[in-house]
């Protein structure tokens, strides 16, 4: 497993110790997947969700939501009525 490449995709800078710990965790999860793969599920119907009911729809009427001020109240920085966020794509 290439921990370094996975970490880079997730934008994580790992120390050697963290990389080793993460490798152990990921290997444990792959081992769990392996355990599940060994279970015979032939003839078992897939269950996509526990509650099987039609999705109820609400009336298509206008209703009040948050005001712009409420929606932006927790923003560290706002500009022109929008969230202002730092640049995230700096790595080559």
């Amino acid at each position: 497993m290439n921990i370094e490449a996975t970490a880079q995709l997730a934008q994580l800078d790992l120390t050697a110790e963290e990389a080793a710990a993460l490798r152990r965790d990921l290997e444990a999860i792959l081992d769990y997947v392996g355990q599940l793969n060994r279970i015979d599920t032939a003839g078992v119907e897939p269950m996509a969700q526990a509650i099987v009911a039609a999705t109820p729809l609400r009336e298509d009427t206008a209703r009040a939501g948050f005001t712009q001020a409420e929606a932006l109240a927790n923003a560290p920085e706002a500009a022109h009525g929008m969230f202002a966020v730092p640049k995230i794509l700096e790595r080559g």
């Binding site: 769990y32 355990q35 599940l36």
Partner: peptide, 15 residues
């Protein structure tokens, strides 16, 4: 019979 698979299911789904 699948009792022991619960932990594996949990850790795959939850994570």
């Amino acid at each position: 019979p699948l009792n022991d698979a619960a932990i594996a299911v949990y850790y795959v789904l939850a994570t």
